[in-house]
Design a protein around this nucleic acid. Structure first.
Lengths: 341, 341
DNA sequence: TGCATTTGCTAAATGGTTTTAGCAAAGGAC
DNA sequence: GTCCTTTGCTAAAACCATTTAGCAAATGCA
């Protein structure tokens, strides 16, 4: 007993006009010559019947579905990275679009399948997102709709939205310098191969480049650089524990918040106080940063803005090649001593 | 110069058959009488041309879009809750479906808009998800497709997938008892109104009910019950700090992992060791639990399985009313003393 | 008045698939 | 040889909105 869906023809009939007229009026065509009276009648009829256009029919005719695909390697691995989706969702919603979310696990075969599934559904655009910034796999298939990379790069698709890691790196160092932490400074998480851009992540190389640049500008040097391939909590803990056996740092520059959390644990065990004995600055503004005690001062990844920008780029095309860098801003909590100004 | 999309008519022409035949063969109709030769020719032609069906056209004709809507209050508020989406995504993908993700912020107006947007797009089913288990707003609109609640409840829509909180609560207490923690036991996060089911969350009431039931069964009582409206890290810290001023608990039963993390911080400051001085059990298996030192033993919310089940229910209909309870299993890390068996 | 233009609207085609109804040929029963 | 059934396939309608081309009436201009 499902009531049949209301179609445009129903609206037209009730308004005493043709479907043509109803369509033109409801889609708000600019140059039409239909009377004000006709407009009123159609709108009234549509409202009365609760008319909702059939998107499939419209898509068939116009090749536009008002939906865009968000294809990512992982869906919100970090709570914070889910900001990418959230930002995209908000921007899509604002433009009366809808997001098709697909997950690839980073696997080429699934990526291909995901792109095809999206294309089959007539999406108006594709966002290829990476939860952790890095070079992204792009299958060898022509994507016939506008496409942007989000938080990742690929040489074959030079349209991307990225955090401004270089400036972010500089900001972190500046924060330390401004807080008067200028010696016994240790870098946590650096990885030599990484820095040479060999592996993983071009954006992370930029983060390091920014750090180096600002260190030089401030005339500072690191007393030590502890490298680690993974950047998990346990790595931070192990590195700092080992460090504390020989040296006592004054400041720790951690390449992400999880490393910093590990550092907190090691410092706590050694009964060192933050920021009195050791100050910390970190990157990402992971959910963790606000949980720690004292709160962790960190350079935030602007995930939400990035997601939003990606959708806006797609929708407001045409797309120009190039990178859009979104600023990373410092979130000051308690892991740096208050500036004496 | 975009090559035009390959249509079914193209395939039929190449195969030397009618579109009717091609359609029947490619959709795998069971009772057709087309020859084996015809099957071979159509499949060959489709493969050669790289034919992909136009989902919009198919949706128009069949009212089925092979896509389902995942409408949630928040997208992955907790990193862990994103398991809901991930599970749904995996199950959808396995059935060659796609997920339309929409966020409502818990607002009635946005919820209504989201449902309409989904229905406009001919989704085959709707999942109404809540990131934090609770009573969910349901707008007064007829949803013409199969619908399930995920991690939330609503009296008007009695089809839901929920964690088995009652059994989960019992498991937590059993874990403590088995580890020999039977006195100076403190409950952390209980809220009297909550327990009476007045506010927020029916599922959480069940968690408490399970705890009470198993405590009684084991002949145990709580030495103290610390209540708090919010369950953030800082609440756990404050409560335990205050507790330590007068008492020293032997075991802490925390109602979620964030509270437990706060407890870790307070215990650490007081130089109490875990699990030697104080043992902890908690709920959720938030990402946090694995970061802590020692790791936090916690009763996991089976988010991924729940998301998967929700999609499977929709796809394998017909839907019977009722709750599907998904078991919560214990994840043992280091916050309980090893069992002496 | 006669012709051209503008105004206000509609008929019909279109998009790509599924599905209903049915056709022609072959085979079977008698 | 006739009639009925089965086999293998197709023509055409249907789904619903958009859009092109164009029609009839009214208006403008001389």
């Amino acid at each position: 007993m499902q009531k049949k869906r209301v179609t445009l023809a129903d609206v037209a009939r009730l308004a005493g006009l043709s479907p043509t007229a109803a369509s033109m009026i409801l889609t708000g065509r600019p140059d039409t010559r239909l009377s004000a009276e006709a407009h009123a009648k159609v709108h009234a009829a549509a409202a009365e019947l609760g008319y909702r256009p059939n998107v499939a029919a419209r898509a068939l005719r116009t090749d536009q579905s008002r939906s865009i695909a968000f294809i990512s390697d992982y869906v919100a691995t970090t709570r914070f990275a889910s900001g990418l989706i959230r930002g995209a969702l908000a921007a899509a919603d604002a433009a009366k679009n809808v997001l098709l979310v697909l997950e690839t696990g980073g696997e080429p075969a699934r990526t291909l399948r995901a792109i095809e599934a999206a294309l089959d559904r007539q999406v108006d655009g594709v966002i290829l997102a990476a939860m952790r910034a890095r070079e992204v796999f792009l299958p060898d298939i022509a994507i016939s709709v506008p496409t942007v990379m989000l938080n990742g790069t690929n040489a074959r698709l030079p349209i991307s939205v990225l955090p401004d890691e270089f400036e972010g790196g500089r900001t972190a160092v500046r924060l330390l310098a401004e807080a008067g932490i200028t010696d016994r400074l240790v870098l946590l998480g650096h990885n030599p191969e990484e820095e040479r851009g060999q592996f993983r992540s071009e954006p992370i190389s930029r983060r390091l480049a920014g750090i180096r640049a600002e260190m030089a500008a401030q005339g500072l040097t690191f007393a030590d650089e502890l490298s680690s391939w993974d950047w998990e909590v346990s790595n931070g803990y192990d590195l700092v524990r080992r460090l504390l056996r020989k040296d006592r740092p004054r400041g720790l520059l951690c390449l992400n918040d999880r490393l910093a959390f590990g550092a907190y644990q090691a410092l706590g065990e050694a009964h060192l106080s933050i920021p009195g004995d050791v100050a910390l600055v970190s990157f990402d503004n992971d959910e963790l940063a606000s949980y720690l005690r004292p709160g962790l001062t960190t350079i935030a990844l602007p995930h939400q803005k990035m997601g939003q920008l990606a959708v806006e780029l797609l929708l407001n095309g045409p797309l120009a090649a190039g990178e859009r860098l979104v600023p990373m801003s410092a979130v000051s909590r308690g892991s740096l001593p208050a500036t004496t100004s």
